[in-house]
Design a binder for these strands. Structure first.
Length: 480
RNA sequence: GCCGCUAUCGUCUAGGGGACAAGGACGCCACCCUUUCAAGGUGGAAACCACGAGUUCGAAUCUCGUUAGCGGCACCA
């Protein structure tokens, strides 16, 4: 689909280490970048955008990288860190000063706020008024940096945006997009602390790192013209741009932590599988040409194309993700599920036990976190509530009598297998004249303390004869 | 407020002028299976294709306008 001739495809994900973990929206963007790189035998790069020193969150970078790894989106290069490249950006900012595409600005934050307020009052877009643009050629501007420092004069460097004309580009997803230059702000490129803003850093890095396709969320669409102006000012070739739809909350606003769990680690802790998360994310905004819903990453790599990416922002639906996760759990074989559960539950259960119960669990759980509540009675004596134990239409005397028969009969059973436990169970039903559901539910509650469990006879087999009878006796004793 | 993007069942979407009285998936409801809960099977409700014009023999599909939603307008990314 690419018209570009044999260029090396290089994509990147550029997270900021300002949050608890990797954001699910970032995971979405990373996924598309990863898939597109793999599809084109290119490289997928991670770059940490840590130029905002005030918002850094300790440990964030490590967690982001770990999470990407867990998702299977392991970068081919990186992490590169913008904070380690600080001097580089300054050099390029100065180059722009020299060729007239940028200028020094000495305005104070207070003045800027004032200007913005005034603009807004007048119903104009809140932009910088170009005050320092006029002093571009004044002696002050030509001071070298050390002397400026002596003078204690703080400054920033701004992009000199042309007043006329328009800047347009072709987005791989949205087609032609254009903006009038007079509405583009003289963006700050270099902050007074010497760090670049996103806009400078992203362009310099994408160029230096030979990023061929800038694939990012739609929230960047309106700053793309600034970036293009920068590429032009440097006389650098443009990369391809693709602006992905933004994931949304159920109320349609941009997916945010206030309204939804957004950290990938949350989903990991809840027992979602990375394969399911990736698959679900892929179905948002993109459809498989054969309209498959469940498909592996390899399939997405094979079939992905930008022209099947939707332009509108999809709502992130946890319910559907959960369903899909269940599908993935059901697709696993018993060993795989047992292994997953073993490490997920921190070795709380014996691996052998997990292997035995995994086939019973498989079609009953949608998240790994649901397993424990279903099988904890295997390793823990149940608390039996008599009200639940004794069937509604029976009294305690009847229950006692029947339970006693159950115990006697099962004690005599030598072949402790699901099939024979089942057979004997049916015989007891006949003998007792209880309804099957009454009898079996009573046994279920007696051995597990629950009304909802994996299949009864299988559970009894796994529990073992001795333990089963033991629990039945305990229940019997409690009735009187 | 200004700029930009978007618009098909509640949600994710198929569709690209006639095959659409709009198909699939999740969710929901009913039934079947069943010792519980699930899973599975079958069926169902659910979209006047945002609205209004236009182009055309013919529009969900093309054009324009309106409306609505979202995004952006920081020495944040």
């Amino acid at each position: 689909m690419l018209e570009c001739k044999r260029i090396m495809v290089r994509t990147r994900i550029a997270p900021s280490p300002t949050g608890q973990d990797f954001h699910i929206g970032n995971a979405y963007t990373a996924l598309i970048n990863y898939i597109f790189a793999k599809q084109n035998k290119g490289r997928f790069i991670v770059r940490i955008e840590d130029t905002d020193r005030t918002r850094l969150v300790e440990g964030s970078e490590t967690r982001i990288l770990n999470t990407m790894n867990w998702l299977g989106l392991t970068p081919d290069e990186g992490p590169y860190r913008q904070s380690e490249r600080k001097e580089l950006y300054k050099k390029y900012a100065l180059e722009l000063i020299n060729n007239g595409h940028a200028y020094y600005c000495f305005c104070t934050p207070q003045r800027l706020t004032e200007v913005r307020n005034q603009m807004q009052k007048q119903g104009k877009p809140p932009m910088y008024d170009g005050f320092c643009k006029k002093i571009k050629n004044s002696p002050r501007a030509s001071l070298d940096e050390s002397r400026r420092g002596e003078a204690g004069q703080k400054y920033v460097i701004r992009l000199n945006v042309p007043d006329e004309g328009e800047t347009n580009f072709n987005d791989l997803i949205r087609g032609k997009v254009s903006f009038q230059n007079k509405l583009i702000d003289d963006q700050i490129l270099l902050k007074s602390d010497g760090f670049p803003t996103y806009h400078l850093a992203v362009v310099v890095d994408d160029y230096l790192m030979k990023i061929s396709h800038v694939i990012r969320a739609e929230e960047w669409l309106s700053s793309t013209p600034k970036h293009i102006l920068l590429y032009n000012a440097f006389k650098w070739p443009l990369p391809f741009f693709a602006h992905l739809p933004i994931l949304r909350n159920p109320d349609k606003s941009k997916l945010s932590k206030r309204k939804n769990p957004v950290w990938v680690s949350y989903y990991r802790e809840q027992g979602y599988l990375p394969e399911a998360i990736n698959n679900y994310l892929m179905t948002l905004g993109w459809t498989h040409p054969k309209q498959l819903t469940i498909f592996p990453l390899s399939e997405a790599i094979l079939e992905f194309s930008f022209d099947r990416v939707n332009k509108s922002g999809p709502i992130f639906d946890v319910v559907k993700l959960t369903w899909m996760n269940g599908e993935y759990i059901r697709m696993m074989n018993n060993e795989e599920l047992a292994d997953k559960l073993y490490s997920y539950m921190n070795k709380k259960f014996d691996r052998k036990l997990l292997l035995l119960v995994s086939s019973l669990l498989k079609q009953r759980i949608k998240k790994l976190s649901e397993a424990e509540g279903l099988i904890d009675f295997f390793i823990k004596k149940p608390d039996v509530d008599l009200k639940v134990l004794i069937p509604k239409k029976r009294d305690s005397q009847q229950a006692k009598k029947v339970l006693n028969e159950v115990i006697q009969d099962y004690m005599g059973l030598n072949n402790w297998s699901t099939a024979s436990i089942h057979d004997l169970g049916n015989k007891i039903v006949e003998k007792s004249r209880w309804k099957p559901v009454e009898l079996f539910q009573m046994i279920r509650v007696a051995i597990s303390g629950k009304t909802v469990t994996p299949p009864l006879f299988e559970s009894m087999e796994i529990l073992g004869k001795e333990e089963t009878i033991n629990r039945l006796e305990t229940a019997l004793r409690n009735i009187s």
